[in-house]
């Protein structure tokens, strides 16, 4: 065993990168769920974002356009979900699962001609001398722009939900759509917009996978990240900053277990491999034990369809 090879600063820097896709997808899903809609199609929207972002970046040569393309395509896919559940009143759970399956298949189809191609590189944000500060420079100032953008988005979502009228309306719709409707808010319209925001964030997270984290296109590239994002929303009890903590915790354990294997720590790798999932489950159980749904902070109208005639 040789732990001296593990540099904590490098480890923290890696976990920040590893967490970006699930953090983006989770913060989008948080807004969707805050408005009272349960969209289980995160995995599907992520992978569509991954391939469409990849295709856009390769064809235009611009990673920035790639990220935009990923977000737009994720939002576009979520519109299908929005129409089915908000307009046609389909069951949200079933529709969300179908969206995941559809997204996986469609991404594979779009990606046929894009295997083995390298995307244009996404550079680091030039912080100049700041990046050379020992330890702190490595952790904070040597990342690609999306790492900062993702944290900024979490902050923005927190601020909007907590301090603005718009946030209040989204929360009202999610807590009691009947009351919000009685007050004159357009429940369906607000929910569709929240779903699209969720789709855009999932798409952005997917694009980060195929453009920065891996960076290439391969079928099934998300490999379950969307499901982890869904778990993190519950884990975070629908609070934005806790999404960040949850994503860092999951990303951190994923990265740490690989580093421990390289350092030849005498823990069987089976246990290390399963550790991120086990810890996620344990935390979820602790978070939800012995308390009611309201104490968990779940939106009261989560997963319930709304129609103005009722």
């Amino acid at each position: 065993m040789d732990l001296s090879g593990i540099n904590p600063a490098v480890l923290i820097a890696s976990l920040m990168v590893a967490s970006v896709p699930i953090m983006l997808a989770a913060i989008g899903e948080l807004v969707t769920e805050k408005s009272g809609v349960l969209n289980l199609g995160v995995e599907g929207m992520m992978i569509i974002g991954a391939i469409c972002g990849f295709v856009t970046a390769v064809e235009t040569g611009s990673p920035l356009l790639g990220f935009i393309g990923g977000a737009v395509s994720g939002a576009a896919l979520s519109v299908i979900f929005a129409v089915l559940t908000q307009v046609l009143q389909a069951n949200q759970v079933a529709t969300g699962l179908a969206l995941t399956l559809f997204g996986l298949g469609l991404s594979s189809l779009i990606g046929q001609g894009y295997v083995g191609i390298k995307p244009p590189p996404t550079g680091m944000v030039p912080f100049g001398p700041l990046a050379d500060i020992p330890v702190i420079g490595r952790i904070l100032f040597k990342h690609d722009p999306m790492v900062y953008v993702s944290i900024a988005i979490v902050a923005a979502v927190w601020a909007v939900l907590k301090f603005t009228r718009m946030g209040l309306i989204i929360r009202a719709v999610g807590e009691s759509h009947e009351a919000a409707h009685a007050l004159g808010y357009k429940v369906t319209r607000i929910r569709i917009l929240a779903i699209m925001f969720g789709g855009a964030m999932a798409g952005l997270g997917g694009a980060y996978l195929s453009l920065v984290r891996v960076p290439q296109w391969a079928d099934g590239i998300t490999a379950g990240a969307g499901w982890i994002a869904l778990a993190i929303v519950v884990f975070a009890s629908w609070r934005p900053w806790r999404v960040l903590i949850g994503a860092y915790l999951f990303g951190g354990i994923s990265v740490l277990q690989l580093n421990l294997q390289v350092a030849k720590v005498p823990i069987p790798p089976e246990y290390l491999s399963m550790s991120p999932y086990v810890i996620t489950i344990i935390v979820l159980v602790i978070m939800s034990s012995g308390r009611g749904r309201s104490a968990m902070n779940a939106p009261a109208a989560l997963g319930q369809n709304f129609h103005a005639s009722r």
């Binding site: 090879g5 593990i6 540099n7 490098v10 480890l11 890696s14 590893a18 896709p21 996978l209 984290r213 891996v214 290439q216 391969a218 590239i221 998300t222 490999a223 990240a225 994923s254 990265v255 690989l258 580093n259 294997q261 390289v262 350092a263």
Partner: peptide, 14 residues
């Protein structure tokens, strides 16, 4: 792919 990339990254960092 993401896990394989992370594994390679962990090695390179050490």
């Amino acid at each position: 792919p993401a896990k394989e990339a992370d594994a390679a990254k962990a090695m390179i960092e050490q």
